[in-house]
């Protein structure tokens, strides 16, 4: 792979890789590190790129593996809640009560999704936030398309149960 190819195919995906890493790690600095490492790895394995059909999915897979390694290696602790504890989102809505209630609900949904097993969570995020097709998700996660569908279904079901609890009991 030439530098040109790297610039035209890999560098534009960087933003996506960064978002992906950020979702997995929940921390901007680590996400930047992992994205950088992933790009380095892609550069090192450039001769493999010629055989690939979907460079983007391949890059995302590398990013995911690196991020999961990092999560595993140091008994990684997510500290997004602490890091962002001081930040209060600026809002121009008139009623602070509604705003804080809304934030509260959002953080509960966030926690619900983050509490899912990693595979469910990633599939749900890739599909419902990033809008990837089943085929793309299958390539990124190196799974069968059917597995993706089944896991997505289970993930949504798990979220739905949690949301119902939230709705009915407020927990």
């Amino acid at each position: 792979m030439s530098l040109e190819r790297f610039l035209s195919q890999v560098v534009p995906v960087r933003q996506k890789l960064y978002r992906f890493a950020y979702r997995l790690l929940g921390n901007e600095e680590d996400a930047q590190d992992i994205t950088q490492d992933a790009l380095m790895k892609v550069w090192d394995m450039q001769e493999k790129m010629a055989e690939l059909q979907n460079t983007e999915a391949w890059c995302m897979r590398i990013t995911r593996n690196l991020a999961l390694d990092k999560l595993k290696s140091r008994k990684y602790r997510r500290h997004d809640d602490l890091d962002h504890a001081g930040e209060v989102a600026a809002s121009h809505q008139s009623n602070p009560y509604t705003v804080s209630e809304q934030n509260d609900v959002m953080s509960k949904v966030h926690a619900t999704i983050n509490a899912l097993p990693e595979k469910y969570k990633t599939i749900l995020q890739l599909r419902d936030i990033d809008g990837h097709s089943y085929q793309e998700i299958a390539e990124i996660l190196d799974l069968e398309m059917n597995d993706v569908k089944v896991n997505l279904h289970r993930a949504r079901k798990a979220v739905r149960e949690k949301l119902q609890n939230l709705q009915v009991y407020g927990i």
Partner: peptide, 9 residues
């Protein structure tokens, strides 16, 4: 029940 999820997404 689904509203918070979709708002979040």
């Amino acid at each position: 029940e689904a509203a918070p999820l979709f708002q979040y997404l």
